[in-house]
């Protein structure tokens, strides 16, 4: 079992695996998005106290969940990178960060546009909102740290450390509404129970699934670019370019980068 896993820990073989998986995750994301939007925006009834402004929940909660969950996955890869010293780990952390940042930003943005009509304010400095803003800064900090280090392997190690230090923020976000007085309400969905009508809950869970599938698809696509970028000096990438038809066979000259019509040759 473990042999198979470590086989895919090599960037070269993970590149192929990721390429085969992407269409499935992308299709699942697209289908779930359509279904979730239909349930949430068309089928689901109006809320008894918030009216139709509550429909922001179908984006807000999935985005917040994925923003936090992606960070945990990043931290897992970061830890694996430190323990096993595999190249792929750092690449996965690098590939996940922008999408985690994106979803955290979406959670903050949609939260603002939900807070204004319901609470009466776009932003307040309560524990839930502040700790989520810190999560966004952690993502940005990770990307800035990477950008400031030229050697990718050193950037991997520094980034992994930053990621692991920041992971303490995740339970703070999650439990903030329980531990302290916040303007933000408590969780509607807890393990084993929910305080939402069934249709509303279904729509939200389907949208969360869509966001999850999207995150997997887009970060696999991104890690493929990162692998090619970081292994561009190795022979296997050269062979890959031929095998995937990005250049002609060896000896027939690869053509100038950016020139069109190479596939046709």
């Amino acid at each position: 079992m473990s042999i198979h896993w470590f086989k895919y820990a090599s960037p070269a073989s993970f590149y192929g695996l990721a390429g085969r998986l992407i269409p499935w995750f992308a299709a699942a994301a697209a289908l779930a998005t359509l279904a979730g939007l239909y349930i949430g925006l068309v089928l689901a009834p109006t809320d008894f106290q918030q009216g139709d402004s509550y429909r922001i929940i179908y984006i807000h909660v999935p985005a917040a969940w994925i923003g936090m969950f992606t960070y945990l996955v990043m931290a897992g890869w970061a830890a694996a990178g430190i323990v096993f010293n595999t190249r792929l780990s750092g690449m996965m952390v690098q590939a996940l960060a922008p999408t985690g940042a994106l979803f955290t930003f979406i959670a903050l943005w949609t939260g603002a546009f939900w807070g204004r009509p319901t609470w009466g304010a776009y932003w307040v400095w309560d524990a839930r909102l502040t700790s989520t803003l810190i999560l966004f800064f952690l993502y940005i900090g990770y990307m800035a740290l990477r950008a400031s280090i030229d050697d990718p392997r050193r950037a991997d190690r520094a980034g992994a450390l930053l990621t692991l230090v920041g992971v303490v923020n995740i339970p703070i976000i999650y439990f903030s509404v329980k531990w302290w007085n916040t303007l933000h309400q408590g969780a509607s969905v807890k393990p084993g129970s929910s305080s939402m009508a069934t249709v509303m809950l279904t729509g939200m869970l389907v949208m969360a699934f869509a966001a999850w599938m999207y995150t997997i698809a887009i970060s696999l696509a991104r890690v493929r670019s990162i692998i090619v970028e970081r292994e561009q000096h190795s022979a296997w990438v050269g062979e890959l370019l031929v095998a995937e038809g990005h250049v002609g066979a060896p000896g027939t000259s690869g053509g100038v980068p950016g020139s069109k019509g190479e596939k046709a040759r």
């Binding site: 670019s225 990162i226 090619v228 970028e229 561009q232 000096h233 990438v237 050269g238 370019l241 990005h246 250049v247 690869g254 053509g255 980068p257 950016g258």
Partner: peptide, 8 residues
């Protein structure tokens, strides 16, 4: 990334 790899 593919363009750069082609140059390499």
């Amino acid at each position: 990334s593919l363009a750069r790899a082609r140059v390499q």
